[in-house]
Design a protein around this nucleic acid. Structure first.
Lengths: 209, 209
DNA sequence: TTGAAATTCATACGAATGTTTGAATTCTGC
DNA sequence: GCAGAATTCAAACATTCGTATGAATTTCAA
């Protein structure tokens, strides 16, 4: 059974995801959210305790959305050849390109947090602690070798972590001028392929001078 | 001679750079700016016609700051070996790390524009039109060859353009836990070196399977 | 059906926003 | 030193913001 009150609750969260993604936490107004959700102004206070409580709910939905698509299992990755593991890692990073209708707003919400970090986000990050950092670092080590310079490993790991992000962050621009890519699944596949090869060659060749 | 009125003007711009960088265009308040500049509320309207006019002035200062540090001359780059040209290109991208005291706020202002594009910024971009895109594309072509797949060239170019940005955008975090890099010039030099080698190896090896 | 709890609603409150106003003050050229 | 322009100033204006209020309505177990 779906209670009418739950419908209002869900409508508020849905509208909030859209508005927070568009305007950021500070820029979003409860009035716009309630208008979009066809709910009353006071509904946010009633259901979530206030604007921040609603945002916490939106952040939970955001983390949830990314977790739902996470296919990366560190154990399996380690059993694979480094090149293949890297390719899977890249593929995972680019997954938002395939699921962009579903993840676009959540990506934007995370982007906002880079510039205006909220307490709500901070607290959720430490409590969840779902870091991909060790996975990426393990991957890097397999290319650079176990006796590699720790600083080089750290930098390369940070570097690797951002490689997919480049295309995810700006994917709205990929389809527009002057690039005009047709953003279908085939394109994403070719992108993943090229990027994997760029990174494999880079990580493989970085130790050689 | 410096007229007192010009001092107010300059104080407003300086304060505005700081506040716009911190809060973004929407989030910044004219009251905070005038307070920081020790000027009157109405001074912004008087000198710049309003908040947007002041922001336009800040954007001009931003573009100016980046232009002042641009050492890249496309002709010289083409005369160099690809590896060396790429290294110089990377070096230029990482320059904000060396000049971070001077460029930090301007970088943040540009980062804000990614999420909340202002009309003022849009207009200034088209009027300035100082794109590094052709430089990067030329560089990529020298590695991939003249007969390379146009899509691969486009993707690789976009990829190359973002490589320095990875470290510039998050350079505030580089020095903090859990990375704790000591952000001196030596570190930047080592970073440029490693990144150059990663990219050189990547672009050189991408055509090989 | 009834009555208490849950939910919705229109409104109001205080604070913060960008801008305007008109007087007060300072600067500048003569 | 003086007139007129340029600049500064405190105050007020109209909006918008997040939240609070208390009554009206709906829901749901008994």
């Amino acid at each position: 059974m779906i209670r009418p009150a739950d419908r209002t609750r869900q409508a508020l969260v849905d509208a909030a995801v859209a508005v927070f993604a568009e305007k950021g936490y500070e820029g979003a107004s409860v009035r716009e959210i309630t208008r979009k959700a066809q709910a009353n102004q006071a509904a946010i206070t009633y259901h979530f305790g206030g604007k921040e409580g609603l945002y916490r709910e939106v952040l939970r939905a955001t983390f949830q959305a990314f977790k739902a698509f996470n296919l990366l299992e560190p154990e399996k990755l380690e059993a694979m050849e480094p090149q293949e593991a890297l390719r899977l890692f890249v593929r995972q990073q680019l997954l938002p390109l395939n699921k962009r209708e579903q993840l676009a707003r959540f990506i934007r919400i995370l982007n906002w947090e880079v510039l205006q970090r909220t307490d709500a986000f901070q607290e959720l990050v430490v409590s969840e602690n779902t870091s991909v950092l060790p996975v990426a670092e393990g991957l890097v080590r397999r290319f650079l070798g176990e006796d590699a310079d720790p600083e080089a490993v750290a930098i390369s790991t940070l570097w690797l972590l951002h490689q997919g992000f480049i295309f995810v962050r700006d994917y709205e621009h990929l389809g527009r001028a002057p690039l005009n890519f047709k953003l279908d699944d085939d394109f994403v596949e070719r992108l993943a392929d090229l990027l994997s090869r760029l990174l494999t060659a880079g990580l493989s060749g970085v130790t050689r001078v």
